[in-house]
Amino acid sequence: MMYRLVLVDDEVSSRNALCNYFPWNQIGFEVVSQFTDGCLALDYIRKNPVDVIFCDIIMPNMDGLLLAKKIYQEKIGCKIIFLSAYKKFDYAREALNYGVRDYLVKPAKYKDLMEVFQRLRMELDEEKRMAFNRLPPDMEAMGQSVCDKTIHAVNEYLSRNYKNATLENTANYIKMNPSYLSQYYYLKTGVHFSDNLLKIRMERAAVLLDNYRYKIKEVSEMVGYMNAKNFTKAFKKYYGKLPRDYRQNI
C-alpha cells in the first residue's frame, strides 16, 4: 500500500526538487499535497487523512515546531520528519517533545532520505499490522467490518449524501472527532475515507453519464463538483479516460 505524504516548505525550489526527483512511489509513499507554511498544512490534515508530514522548521505564519505541537496536541495520527537548514540542538530537542520521528539537515542527501523513509515505511507497516491484529477474529482487514455500527453509519451517510459529504459533516453526523473518524475508518476498513467518497462519486457519475439528458457539467455538479474541470480531472484519474470518452464508449 501507499502511505500519504505532505511536503511543507516555503522554499519552492527545495519543495519541487523533493516532490519531483525523489522516488517516493518506489518506497511506498505518495505526495498528496504540498504547502508553503504550517497554517495551510494544518488546515489540510484536519480534513484529510495523512500518514506523514515532511516539514521545514523555519517558515512564515506557522513554523514547523508549532505545526508539530498542534498535531501533537490535537492527537492527529501522522508521523513528522523535519527538514531544516539549521542544525541546532534546541530545535531537535523540542521536536522530540512532539513526537517528531527524525531530523534531516538541508540539503538532504539522497542516501539519508532513503534510509529515513525506508525505516519509516517499516514502522508504519508494523503499526498497521499490529492494529489489524487487534481486530476481532471475525473481521478481516479489507472492508468486512461493515457490521460495525459506526462504519455502517458512515457508509450509509455517504451513499445518501455523496454530493455534499465531507469528513467534517460526516463526523458531526455520527458524533465523532473528524481526525479520529479518519483514523478509525481506515483502521476498520483498510480504505481511506476520502478514497471511499471518491469511489462513490465516480461510480455514481458513471451511471449518470449513461443518461444523455445530463450534460457533463450537470453530472459534475450532481456528484459534488462545482468546478467541471476538477470533476474531469478526477474522473480521468479514476477511470483512465475523460467523461466524454467514457460516455461515447457506453
Results as ranks from 00 to 15, higher is better:
Leu66Phe: 09
Tyr225Gly: 04
Phe132Asp: 10
Met1Glu: 12
Phe54Gly: 01
Met142His: 11
Lys163Leu: 08
Asn196Tyr: 15
Glu11Gln: 09
Val116Gln: 04
Lys79Gly: 12
Ala165Glu: 09
Thr36Trp: 01
Ile45Ser: 06
Val191His: 10
Val154Ile: 11
Thr36Asp: 14
Glu140Tyr: 11
Arg204Glu: 15
Lys163Ala: 14
Ala68Trp: 03
Gly99Pro: 06
Ile216Gly: 08
Lys233Gly: 00
Ala131Asp: 02
Leu158Arg: 09
Tyr238Phe: 15
Lys199Met: 08
Arg204Ile: 04
Ile57His: 00
Gly38Phe: 07
Lys75His: 05
Asn61Tyr: 03
Tyr212Pro: 02
Lys199Tyr: 15
Leu67Phe: 06
Met142Leu: 12
Glu156Asn: 15
Asp138Trp: 10
Gln34Asn: 10
Ala171Pro: 03
Tyr98Ser: 05
Leu67Met: 02
Gln248Ala: 14
Tyr103Leu: 02
Gly224Thr: 05
Lys188Tyr: 07
Tyr239Leu: 02
Met222Tyr: 11
Asn155Glu: 14
Lys188Ser: 11
Lys217Glu: 15
Glu221Asn: 07
Tyr184Arg: 09
Leu181Tyr: 13
Lys236Asn: 14
Arg93Ala: 15
Ile27Lys: 01
Met139Ile: 08
Tyr212Phe: 06
Ala206Arg: 12
Lys69Ser: 04
Val207Phe: 04
His192Ala: 07
Leu124Tyr: 13
Asn133Gly: 11
Ser179Met: 00
Asp37Lys: 02
Ala108Arg: 08
Cys19Leu: 05
Trp24Ser: 07
Asp37Tyr: 09
Pro136Arg: 04
Lys111Asp: 14
Asn164Lys: 13
Tyr212Cys: 01
Asp51Glu: 06
Tyr86Phe: 13
Tyr21Thr: 13
Phe35Tyr: 14
Leu124Glu: 09
Pro49Tyr: 06
Arg46Ile: 05
Asn61Asp: 13
Tyr246Cys: 08
Arg134Lys: 11
Ile250Ser: 04
Leu209Ile: 00
Ile45Thr: 02
Asp125Thr: 04
Arg46Cys: 09
Asn196Ser: 12
Asn97Gly: 07
Met62Asn: 03
Ala41Met: 04
Asn133Leu: 09
Ser33Arg: 03
Val116Glu: 10
Ser179Cys: 02
Leu167Arg: 05
Lys217Phe: 08
Asn177Pro: 03
Met114Thr: 11
Met114Ile: 12
Ile216Phe: 02
Tyr184Ile: 04
Asp90Gln: 01
Val50Tyr: 00
Met62Lys: 03
Asn25Leu: 00
Lys217Ala: 13
Asp90Lys: 01
Leu7His: 07
Ala141Asn: 07
Lys217Arg: 10
Arg46His: 13
Ile58Tyr: 06
Leu40Val: 02
Val6Ile: 03
Glu126Val: 02
Lys88Tyr: 15
Lys109Met: 07
Val31Phe: 12
Met202Lys: 02
Asp90Pro: 06
Ser14Ile: 03
Tyr180Ile: 06
Asn133Gln: 12
Val219Phe: 09
Val8Met: 04
Asn97Lys: 10
Tyr180Trp: 03
Leu7Ile: 12
Leu42Phe: 14
Phe35Pro: 10
Glu156Leu: 07
Leu198His: 03
Ile151Ala: 11
Thr170Phe: 00
Ser159Ala: 14
